[in-house]
Amino acid sequence: MRIGAHLDSADPLAGAAARSADVVQFFLSDPQGWASPETRPDAADLRDSDVDVFIHAPYVINVATLNNRIRIPSRKLLMAHASVAADLGARGLIVHGGHVNKGDDIAKGFDNWRKTFAYAAESGGFATRILIENTAGGDNACARRFDALARLWDAIGAYEVGFCLDTCHAYAGGEELLGIVERVKAITGRIDLIHANDSRDTFNSGRDRHTNLGQGTIDPDLLVAVIRAAGCPAVVETPGGVEGQAADIALLRERL
């Protein structure tokens, strides 16, 4: 199993070496902004490296919303990030499942996801596989509860879409970790990446606050069992910089 970390985007390969990481994940632009990503000068180095590359889309993207001032720019920005990610040889572009506003029909949110893939298909599809990530909070989220996730996959499963399972998000979002891999695969058919994070908060808190493995409220043995069962690359999105993330990676290597 290949294991790595979410890093600062300045020099991902140096960050990987410092952590003994096989995998890197990073943003291409401000995660809270709408700026289009730019081609990176280290693109060839990233493509030629033995390190697996994943890109995380900005948090502001929400293609599910009924607000077309957010939905339409979100579609365009997702396409732009997929194009630059492909230039880096990325294995996937992770994007949160999004939500609709209180009082809106969530069925329209699922259909907006379908329209997003249909929109992309008009120009040949996304250049990099989109990996939808489960989220921790919100009663109107498209990928927090797995009953909603199943409805989302009913809408988009015909497209070449993948899934990223975040352990902290699942736990804080109220999904039991015992048997979670089997439940996810029964819906999506696949898990392409696992975000291996402990949670600072309690089960079903709805709060997305990561912490280092073994330092939070998730049973470490259960966390490791989920990562093992997923059988895909794992990325820690944990604090502590080089030291904290290197320790998490080393722990997973030892336990797995």
Rank of each mutant, 00 (worst) to 15 (best):
103 G>V: 04
12 P>G: 01
201 D>W: 07
78 L>V: 13
217 T>K: 15
18 A>E: 14
219 D>A: 08
143 A>M: 15
247 A>Y: 03
70 I>E: 07
177 L>P: 07
216 G>I: 10
136 A>D: 05
23 V>R: 05
232 C>P: 06
54 F>K: 08
123 S>I: 05
153 W>G: 04
111 D>G: 01
239 P>N: 13
178 L>T: 15
252 L>C: 10
20 S>K: 12
41 P>N: 00
83 S>T: 15
252 L>Q: 01
251 L>Y: 14
201 D>P: 09
76 K>G: 10
49 S>M: 01
177 L>K: 10
28 L>Y: 04
198 D>G: 00
96 H>R: 03
194 I>S: 06
88 L>A: 06
17 A>F: 02
79 M>K: 14
20 S>D: 15
148 A>V: 09
12 P>D: 04
66 L>S: 12
38 E>I: 11
171 Y>R: 10
183 R>S: 13
3 I>S: 10
99 H>E: 13
162 G>M: 05
34 W>Q: 12
256 L>T: 11
61 I>F: 02
215 Q>L: 13
19 R>D: 03
150 A>L: 07
229 A>W: 00
114 R>F: 05
39 T>H: 11
64 A>C: 03
83 S>N: 11
32 Q>K: 15
136 A>S: 14
135 T>A: 11
91 R>H: 12
173 G>N: 08
130 I>M: 07
4 G>C: 09
40 R>M: 08
91 R>Y: 04
36 S>A: 15
10 A>L: 06
88 L>Y: 08
22 D>A: 00
115 K>G: 13
138 G>Y: 13
160 E>P: 15
71 R>E: 10
42 D>S: 11
140 N>I: 00
24 V>N: 00
208 D>Y: 10
204 N>E: 09
147 D>R: 13
40 R>C: 05
59 Y>I: 00
205 S>L: 11
208 D>N: 10
237 E>S: 11
148 A>P: 02
236 V>T: 03
253 R>K: 15
92 G>K: 04
252 L>I: 15
194 I>L: 14
198 D>Y: 06
39 T>L: 11
190 R>Q: 12
123 S>D: 14
54 F>Y: 15
146 F>V: 07
254 E>F: 03
76 K>V: 11
83 S>R: 15
120 A>G: 06
224 V>I: 14
109 G>N: 10
9 S>D: 00
28 L>N: 05
192 D>K: 12
80 A>L: 14
251 L>F: 13
141 A>M: 10
118 A>H: 01
232 C>Q: 03
225 A>E: 14
88 L>E: 00
149 L>R: 00
251 L>M: 11
45 D>L: 13
106 I>A: 11
219 D>M: 05
195 H>I: 13
218 I>Q: 01
227 I>N: 08
145 R>H: 14
108 K>H: 06
231 G>T: 09
83 S>F: 03
141 A>K: 04
238 T>V: 14
37 P>S: 08
171 Y>S: 13
130 I>R: 02
244 G>T: 07
101 N>W: 00
218 I>F: 08
98 G>K: 03
162 G>N: 04
35 A>H: 12
114 R>P: 01
90 A>M: 02
46 L>Y: 04
157 G>L: 07
196 A>V: 13
136 A>L: 03
37 P>A: 08
26 F>T: 06
184 V>L: 06
156 I>A: 02
249 I>H: 00
